[in-house]
Design a protein around this nucleic acid. Structure first.
Length: 341
DNA sequence: AATAAATACAACCGCACGATT
DNA sequence: CAATCGTGCGGTTGTATTTAT
């Protein structure tokens, strides 16, 4: 976004309009709250939506007696208060999916989020910026560079797959589900010699179990169903939940745990009642998996790599965010990339 | 123990676009 | 057809928390 250059006439008009909006807003500015939401505001918003549903956010904000912009209310609802928002660490499977989908679609966060039920675009975006981009920085390469993408594709993702397998300890059981949909995120794209660009994205996406309606619709519907079926009752701290592990809104509290723990517990964390959702733990990603050795023994021993990174959290319970690439790893990686790609 | 730096994430912003008036 | 409204998206910022020194 470069607001300083390339402004056409339409944009000028729009700026003027926005300027008018700003003036109008400034007249009301003293009434508008900003910053972190209070518990009271959250309850007010949830109560209102439980009775009247969502949408028409500007009028909703007014009707609910909230001194917030409609935008702010919408964001708060979608990213935090919605009943089906999943909280807690991004699991290994989710990490893998994010890497995969980002490699396809780039920064299309909302599109990516559609394939990670309960996760918001904001959350995925934050994950990418804080975790993945950090590693690009450590590797001293641009996050959009081929080098970095290859690192993800040929090093991180295979490791993630291995960790997922190791953590589940039941790869055969997973494979036995007969669902090969995770091939999309594993084998066909990353572990054979096909050029990823040759892959028909559309056909692969359709390999995923399709919801009755669109994923987005289900997402929205689910919130609405909960909302509308709660028409007669309001959200209160008293009636929202009796679970000791729930917060005051009845949302499941997921304590910060390691990715490994997350991984082990993943099935139980699937609180989403919509079984049509695409859940990595339902997928037989091992079906098409070719061992990363297939690649990394080409000049660069994968085992060797693992030994050298024995403290690498990829292998011992951490995640991307924890992984510090030692210099030698980076050098070896560069050799590998230069010789093979 | 105190402080600085790094990290994670909620929230905001500007913009685009389709729908409605 | 233009103006306005509502919504959604991607980028950015602010700040609380955690980690390192």
């Amino acid at each position: 976004m470069d607001a300083k250059s390339g402004i056409n006439s339409n944009q000028v008009v729009e700026r003027m309009m926005n300027s008018c909006d700003d003036q109008e807003e400034e007249m009301m500015i003293e009434d508008l709250r900003r910053g972190p939401w209070t518990v009271e505001e959250d309850f007010a918003l949830m109560n209102y939506i439980s009775r009247h549903g969502e949408g028409r956010w500007n009028s909703l904000a007014r009707s609910a007696g909230l001194k917030r912009t409609g935008k702010s209310c919408r964001l708060r609802w979608l990213n935090y208060l919605r009943p089906d928002v999943r909280r807690g660490n991004i699991t290994l499977e989710e990490q893998l999916l994010i890497l995969e989908l980002h490699s396809r679609w780039g920064n299309r966060w909302s599109k990516i989020a559609q394939h990670l039920p309960g996760r918001t675009d904001n959350e995925i975006k934050n994950y990418w910026r804080t975790r993945v981009q950090k590693h690009a920085k450590q590797l001293k390469c641009d996050v959009n560079s081929k080098q970095f993408k290859d690192t993800m594709r040929y090093l991180w993702m295979p490791r993630l797959v291995e960790r997922i397998q190791a953590a589940s300890g039941t790869s055969s059981a997973i494979a036995a589900t007969g669902d090969s949909t995770f091939a999309m995120a594993t084998g066909s794209s990353y572990y054979n010699t096909n050029n990823i660009n040759d892959i028909n994205v559309a056909s692969q996406v359709t390999m995923m179990p399709q919801p009755h309606n669109s994923m987005m619709c289900d997402n929205m519907d689910q919130g609405m169903v909960q909302s509308t079926t709660n028409n007669s009752s309001s959200f209160t701290p008293e009636n929202s939940s009796t679970s000791a592990s729930s917060d005051s809104f009845g949302r499941s509290q997921v304590s910060p745990v390691s990715d490994v723990t997350d991984c082990y517990n993943y099935p139980t964390l699937n609180l989403n009642p919509n079984q049509d959702y695409y859940f990595p733990d339902q997928l037989g990603f091992t079906d098409t998996l070719i061992s990363p050795m297939g690649y990394h023994n080409q000049g660069l021993g994968y085992q060797c790599m693992e030994q050298k990174t024995s403290t690498n959290p990829w292998m011992d319970g951490g995640d991307l965010s924890d992984s510090l690439w030692i210099t030698e790893d980076i050098w070896l990686l560069n050799q590998q990339l230069n010789s093979n790609f």
